[in-house]
């Protein structure tokens, strides 16, 4: 069974009298432990696809199965549960809670899980922070950390609930190239450890870390091929 199975996905917005087809019949399948980048110029529909894959939005029509579950027709709260259990987000702007420590930020998905006891949450969060080499920064607040460290806290937060996919939207966009490269090395490692990673980016050298690249144009998939890295 494929991890993600998308078939004939449409997302159509009504802007006044004109109809905008943000996604115009997209079909894609992603297997477990794949490392995929999604590329495309702005307006190509890559953000829309990312929002749909991240279960932040529902399609106008089409099929979308994640881990065998049909998420295309789910309501708000069901989607929230899917996001909580299956998806780990990494955003361009980190999106950490500024007043909370690294530990609290990383604990957040576990809190909304609702079934994990406080001391377990703490242990799991510390473990995730250790995996991104921030075991010594648990009680720092975001403003006491560098950009790279902040993004690593965000990665730890994405990892902590053992999601089916890690969805990273321009994860290096707010970092200098050296720090960005460090973050990409971290993603490579996570991939090696068995995680499924979807990268949304417009930078070729970032996309090159993945083993497969999906290029969007005008709401359609233009290219879906293995990268050099992914070629046998």
């Amino acid at each position: 069974m494929s991890l993600i199975k998308v078939k004939d996905l449409y997302k159509i917005y009504q802007m006044g009298n004109t109809e905008v087809r943000a996604l115009d019949g997209v079909s894609v399948t992603i297997e477990k432990n794949e490392y995929v980048s999604i590329m495309g110029p702005s307006g190509s529909g890559k953000s829309t696809l990312m929002n749909l894959l991240g279960c932040l939005d529902t399609p106008t029509s089409g099929e979308f199965f994640m881990d065998g579950i049909n998420v295309a027709t789910m309501g708000d709260d069901e989607l929230a549960h899917i996001r909580n259990k299956k998806i780990g987000f990494v955003f361009q702007t980190f999106n950490l809670l500024p007043k909370s420590t690294s530990l609290r930020n990383v604990e957040l998905p576990l809190i909304y899980n609702g079934e994990i006891k406080a001391h377990e949450r703490r242990d799991m969060a510390i473990k995730a922070l250790t995996r991104v080499n921030l075991g010594d920064r648990v009680s720092h607040k975001p403003n006491e950390l560098s950009g790279g460290q902040r993004q690593r806290v965000a990665v730890a937060r994405a990892l902590v609930n053992n999601p089916a996919i890690i969805l990273a939207d321009e994860p290096t966009g707010n970092l200098d190239s050296k720090t960005g490269e460090e973050i990409m090395v971290l993603f490579d490692e996570l991939h090696k450890q068995g995680n499924t990673i979807i990268l949304v980016t417009h930078e070729e050298h970032i996309a090159a870390h993945a083993s497969r690249v999906v290029r969007l144009l005008d709401g359609k998939i233009a290219v879906d091929e293995a990268t050099n890295r992914g070629k046998p």
């Binding site: 929230a80 259990k85 950490l96 957040l108 909304y112």
Partner: peptide, 10 residues
């Protein structure tokens, strides 16, 4: 937005 993305319900 962050809380919702991480799975907070309404």
């Amino acid at each position: 937005g962050v809380r919702k993305a991480l799975g907070a319900t309404r």
